[in-house]
Design a protein around this nucleic acid. Structure first.
Lengths: 110, 110
DNA sequence: ACTATATTTCCATAAATATAGAAATATTTC
DNA sequence: GAAATATTTCTATATTTATGGAAATATAGT
């Protein structure tokens, strides 16, 4: 994981609207949701939503796929897991027991 | 986990210098590091470092403890794990098998 | 109380980001 | 090809954030 990438991805979700969007997609699973459905669910105007979707997409946290007139957005789970692993990498100098939950991770390549 | 808190915490580490600082402290373990040691290790001017430490601290991601003339900063692992759990909460509508790694989590209270 | 060390606050400047209406683009159906 | 639906781009404005030098504050030893 590249540091610039991590900063971009964290910045992408460090914003209320985008955090809502991302979590909604994380919970929606691989099929994802159409832009209109997201807009309705979260009550975000189209132009604003479009701006935020582009930010998330540009950061690599979500993917878009066109299907007829709709564009479906879905969470990129591999990217999400990569980011979480980067944050917890080599936690407590490798002593994973120091973390109460299961998030500590050994060092990653890259 | 409160949404505003999550945004504040993500915003705190969505910045190169602060991400470096946070990861350094995550790896340093519970004893933490003195401000001067962080400044030297990461080559960040004192005033700039102080600003960033305050941001991280205010977001609740790190804790400070005074010891003689030094102020030791350390990662708040519970906060970190809470944030990660918030991001992955109810991943894929509860089907944790959809995530390749071990980050998916069931819904949390709050 | 003087000196040295550690850290923070003050300040001004520079840069990045969020918002949403209106217009534009793309796709499907008739 | 016109009408309807879905989404994006353009635009302007308002707000937030990052940087580091210089001065201020705090703690410890002599």
């Amino acid at each position: 994981m590249d540091k610039k990438t991590a900063v971009a991805q964290l910045g992408a979700i460090a914003q209320e609207a985008r955090l809502d969007i991302f979590r909604l997609l994380v919970q929606a699973g691989t099929p994802g949701l159409a832009a209109g459905a997201i807009s309705e669910t979260l009550n975000i105007p189209n132009s604003t939503l479009s701006f935020h979707l582009k930010e998330l997409s540009h950061a690599g946290l979500i993917a878009a796929r066109q299907e007829s007139r709709f564009i479906y957005y879905s969470a990129d789970y591999a990217a999400m897991n990569g980011l979480l692993a980067y944050l917890t990498e080599n936690c407590c100098a490798g002593d994973t027991a120091c973390c109460p939950d299961s998030y500590c991770s050994p060092p990653q390549k890259g």
